[in-house]
């Protein structure tokens, strides 16, 4: 019972925190330079791991899919399945999971370290709202960088799938491209990017919240970073499932 109450308390505190972040993000002063700096840091930190995570997925979809599609003589349509799977599901989910692992942990660790070392108090004494200066830039950076990474992973995922379907699997290039472009609609792209932004928002908020509410020592900073990764990845996968169900239900 205590555990349930504590969880509800944390959830309530997180919702209040999200409200505070939203107010701070849309009212001056906004620290644009700090936001751009965080975007640069997070993009550099995430681009290679995200690429390495998504590229093999496209390859595996083609590798496994081609043998199944061949049973029905429909290997020419493999790219339809590959494109939908990559654009709508794997690319947003994997890009966001890697953003959670790389960016979320680094934001939580950075803010937690600042808190433990008195730098958050130093900001407050200098009349700087720590939520505006350290949390909002991190959240905005996640919201913007996650979909940008997803664009890259869309291309990489489809390319690696093409490699295993066309040169290796023997599917005709023209047929591959025809079914790919016929199946992928702008809605698929926007849905994927929208999901990435939503997941990025969750990563930034949870990382900021856990970082600011860290305990007193170095071990607590590590725990905040770890908790950020675990909780955001679970959240991303659950929300991804719920959003996909809702969109399919709505005919999108």
């Amino acid at each position: 019972m205590d555990k349930l109450l504590r969880s509800l308390h944390t959830l309530g505190a997180l919702v209040m925190f999200a409200g505070q972040v939203a107010r701070s993000a849309f009212t001056p002063p906004v620290y644009l330079g700090e936001t751009l700096r965080m975007m640069n840091v997070l993009a550099k930190r995430c681009v290679i791991p995200v690429s390495l995570a998504v590229a093999p997925v496209g390859a595996v979809i083609s590798l496994q899919g081609i043998s199944i599609f061949k049973l029905f003589g429909a290997e020419r349509m493999l790219s339809s399945f590959l494109g939908t799977a990559i654009f709508r599901e794997y690319s947003p989910a994997l890009a966001s999971v890697m953003v959670a692992a790389q960016a979320g942990s680094s934001i939580a660790a950075r803010i937690g370290t600042m808190k433990v070392r008195g730098q958050i108090d130093a900001l407050a004494v200098m009349s700087v709202d720590p939520v505006r200066f350290v949390v909002v830039p991190g959240v905005l950076a996640c919201v913007i960088v996650a979909p940008l990474l997803s664009v890259l992973t869309n291309l990489l995922g489809v390319f690696s799938g093409w490699v295993f379907a066309v040169p290796i699997g023997g599917v005709d290039h023209g047929a591959f491209m025809e079914h790919l472009t016929a199946q992928i609609t702008p809605a698929d792209l926007w849905i994927g990017l929208g999901k990435c932004s939503l997941f990025g928002l969750g990563v930034g908020l949870i990382a900021g919240y856990l970082g600011l509410n860290v305990g007193k020592g170095a071990a607590d900073v590590g725990k905040a970073a770890n908790d950020t990764v675990v909780s955001t990845i679970v959240l991303i996968l659950l929300v991804d499932y719920a959003v996909s169900m809702a969109l399919l239900g709505a005919g999108l």
Partner: peptide
Amino acid sequence: LFAVRRRFGMLFQDGALFDD
């Protein structure tokens, strides 16, 4: 409160310099 704080400079015990 921020107006009052702008009248202060504070040297923290451990410095509290920004690492980055």
